[in-house]
């Protein structure tokens, strides 16, 4: 396939990368795993003059626990790094499972969590569970750095808060009050399928009472979204089949899916309803799963 010409850079440090991006401005695109960027370039949907590879920035690959901060995931961690991380498996198994639900093994070896976020597509599988777990992100540029809630990052389909010259450095998952979390995805085959709909939830369970819940939907609107009405409906209620089913119906009512080759809006709304109910049940009964 056709690959347009570009100039390739692989800065050795974060500072160099920031400087380079500041100089090149809009002419540059950041290259991490390349599973989206290279594909778009081959299709002629993106023709950057410069590609700035982050591959030498090893500090962005780590997944670690920092006391007082929480779990910090470097943006260059691949989906398979997330899947195989013992730390994540022990603390929030929902993240490795979400990572494993994506694409194919080859893509999971290359694709990064940072790319999955900054790409900004509504069908991305990692943002829902990361938002449900209340994550924040750190954006670094030549002029400094800033942090924000991941939830605030997405503005629309392929539209995010990232500014030219900024690098998504890491994602932080704060210590949780949540007793359970999970991501449920509905794809049209068992591997290599994008989400027709996906639902991530966290719950705080106290005996059989729901003290709090977060419900985040993917492929259900132009951007990843919270189902706040459904979240509210659960607060301080006793767990019952009807409670969860009603929450599912409310999540579906708040979703704004569109028709696509993978499913009609009507079907997707139904999937949101079913997945929300099932995800809540799983997070309540199985914890971080």
């Amino acid at each position: 396939m056709y690959m347009p010409d570009f100039e390739y850079h692989a800065p050795g440090t974060m500072a160099e990368a920031c400087k380079l991006l500041a100089e090149l401005g809009g002419k540059a695109v950041i290259l991490a795993g390349g599973t989206d960027v290279l594909h778009k370039m081959k299709q002629g949907k993106m023709t950057p003059e410069h590609l700035v590879s982050l591959k030498n920035l090893d500090e962005l690959r780590s997944i670690r626990y920092e006391a007082g901060r929480g779990v910090v995931i470097g943006s260059l961690a691949t989906h398979n790094n997330l899947y195989t991380s013992e730390l994540l498996q022990n603390k929030y198994l929902s993240i490795p499972m979400a990572a494993h639900s994506m694409a194919s093994n080859q893509i999971r070896n290359m694709g990064t969590v940072g790319g999955n976020i900054v790409n900004g597509v509504p069908s991305a599988d990692l943002p829902p569970i990361l938002i449900a777990l209340n994550s924040t992100i750190r954006l670094v540029s030549a002029s400094g750095e800033r942090s924000m809630a991941l939830e605030e990052f997405f503005h629309g389909s392929a539209q995010t808060a990232i500014a030219p010259g900024e690098i998504l450095a890491d994602i932080t998952i704060p210590d949780q009050a949540a007793t359970g979390s999970t991501y449920m995805k509905f794809g049209l085959r068992r591997s290599g399928a994008l989400a027709v709909a996906g639902v991530a939830v966290t719950v705080i369970i106290d005996g059989d009472i729901v003290r709090g819940a977060r419900i985040v939907l993917s492929s259900a609107a132009p951007t990843v979204m919270r189902a706040r009405d459904a979240e509210e409906s659960l607060k301080n209620k006793k767990v019952s089949e009807k409670l969860l089913a009603d929450a599912g119906a409310m999540a579906a009512a708040s979703s704004r899916p569109r028709d696509s080759i993978r499913g009609s809006a009507e079907y997707r709304r139904n999937l949101v309803e079913v997945l929300t109910k099932r995800a809540l049940d799983r997070a309540i009964t199985k914890g971080h799963s």
């Binding site: 068992r190 591997s191 290599g192 994008l194």
Partner: peptide, 16 residues
């Protein structure tokens, strides 16, 4: 053709 690739023209994978 709207799905001229193996992502959206879904033949079985080994898992399926």
């Amino acid at each position: 053709v709207r799905n001229p690739e193996l992502g959206n023209y879904r033949i079985l994978t080994a898992l399926d």
